[in-house]
Computed example of a mutant assay.
Amino acid sequence: MEKVILDCDPGHDDAIAIMLAAGNPAIDLLGITTVAGNQTIEKVTRNALSVCAAAGIHVPVARGASAPLVASQVVAEDIHGATGLDGPALPEPAFALDPRHAVDFIIDTVMAHESNTVNLVPVGPLTNIALAMRKEPRIIERVKSVVLMGGAHTRGNMTPHAEFNIYVDPEAAEAAFRADWNVTMVGLDLTHQALASAELQARVRAIGGPVSEFVGAVWDFVGAAYREVYEFEAPPVHDACCVAALIDPTIFTTAMADVRVELRGEWTRGTTVVNFRDVPGMHHSSGSAERQTDFRTAVALQLDQQRFADQVVDAVERLTANLAK
């Protein structure tokens, strides 16, 4: 089993990521930490607890950073609504928050487990991760991997080139990419392949029960938002892709690259500048003596969409069965 701390900002696709992590037997979900992103920290933390209540999930939930390291706060109300998780009925939390700040929860958990066994899965802005690295640098050598949802090498969704999670806190993202640990960047180029298609939605709805209904309501709302804002026929399930890769590392292909986050450009702040090492047709520069190129980030490229859909359906089925016990 892969030990996972899921750092998130629920968020519709975050909700599916939580369910996939809790519902798949290959994942040992050690805890959920929250960060301001899709909505304020108060709202996304409440949403994390509500998702756990809706799906019968019982793991520690710790509230984290309420604002980016440097920038002013940005939320995604146009996609996720006033609550951050509009659409489904949000049940009352079934348990209390962990008393620790998310940063301390991350540090304590990584340090308490054997080295090279805990995976960090940040699927919102990387503020908590950067703060944890700063407060306890020893976690960097102990973490097994960081599988993050953010960035892109061809497009953005906040600006022409910047993806939301990186744009919200680019300084934190740059710190995470520069740290000496194993990073996989699961960006828009990959997650836009992970669509909640009509077929997938029909399979989930056919399961029946409260978990299926909750997921259906999630996709109804965010699907309408994506049609209106981005003209997508079906909404991407961005964040669950990171969990899917830990369940099955072959579910998407990757290529090694040097990833830098643009921090100063007037029109490009928050852009992930991706320099691929061995991908035909993609930019490659060896760098200079002043700035050595560092090809050590795995960038996700191509998703097996059918296997991803199967994972989501399986998780909903398992959570549904557990609730019925």
Score class of each variant (00 low, 15 high):
residue 290 E to C: 08
residue 234 A to Q: 14
residue 272 T to C: 14
residue 15 A to I: 02
residue 200 L to N: 09
residue 289 A to P: 10
residue 287 G to K: 10
residue 34 T to R: 07
residue 171 E to Y: 15
residue 57 I to A: 06
residue 281 G to M: 01
residue 217 A to Q: 12
residue 293 T to G: 09
residue 273 V to F: 15
residue 29 L to R: 11
residue 251 I to A: 07
residue 222 V to N: 15
residue 250 T to W: 08
residue 28 D to L: 02
residue 269 R to P: 06
residue 92 E to W: 04
residue 184 T to W: 06
residue 250 T to F: 12
residue 108 D to R: 04
residue 27 I to G: 05
residue 60 P to E: 00
residue 28 D to H: 13
residue 240 A to C: 05
residue 49 L to T: 07
residue 276 F to K: 11
residue 76 A to W: 11
residue 196 A to T: 03
residue 228 E to P: 10
residue 33 T to R: 12
residue 58 H to P: 06
residue 23 G to K: 01
residue 263 L to R: 12
residue 303 L to Q: 14
residue 25 P to C: 00
residue 314 D to C: 05
residue 154 T to F: 02
residue 79 I to L: 12
residue 217 A to M: 05
residue 230 Y to W: 08
residue 188 L to T: 06
residue 171 E to M: 10
residue 262 E to A: 14
residue 265 G to R: 15
residue 64 G to E: 05
residue 180 D to K: 11
residue 45 T to I: 01
residue 3 K to E: 03
residue 145 S to H: 07
residue 67 A to K: 15
residue 309 A to M: 04
residue 26 A to D: 09
residue 242 C to A: 13
residue 307 R to L: 00
residue 195 L to M: 13
residue 59 V to Q: 08
residue 61 V to F: 04
residue 212 S to T: 08
residue 225 A to H: 09
residue 118 V to N: 15
residue 143 V to Q: 13
residue 171 E to V: 11
residue 86 D to G: 01
residue 283 H to V: 04
residue 253 T to Y: 10
residue 154 T to R: 12
residue 232 F to V: 05
residue 27 I to W: 03
residue 311 Q to I: 01
residue 78 D to L: 06
residue 308 F to I: 01
residue 30 L to V: 03
residue 65 A to Y: 04
residue 159 T to Q: 14
residue 314 D to M: 05
residue 31 G to V: 01
residue 147 V to M: 06
residue 198 A to C: 04
residue 123 V to P: 13
residue 141 E to F: 04
residue 295 F to Q: 07
residue 106 I to V: 15
residue 67 A to V: 06
residue 275 N to S: 06
residue 196 A to P: 09
residue 1 M to E: 13
residue 49 L to P: 09
residue 224 A to C: 12
residue 153 H to S: 08
residue 5 I to S: 11
residue 256 M to L: 13
residue 14 D to T: 13
residue 287 G to D: 04
residue 165 N to P: 10
residue 101 H to G: 03
residue 148 L to R: 14
residue 28 D to Q: 14
residue 102 A to D: 06
residue 92 E to G: 11
residue 178 R to C: 13
residue 25 P to E: 01
residue 44 V to S: 11
residue 124 G to F: 02
residue 18 I to M: 15
residue 29 L to M: 05
residue 28 D to S: 12
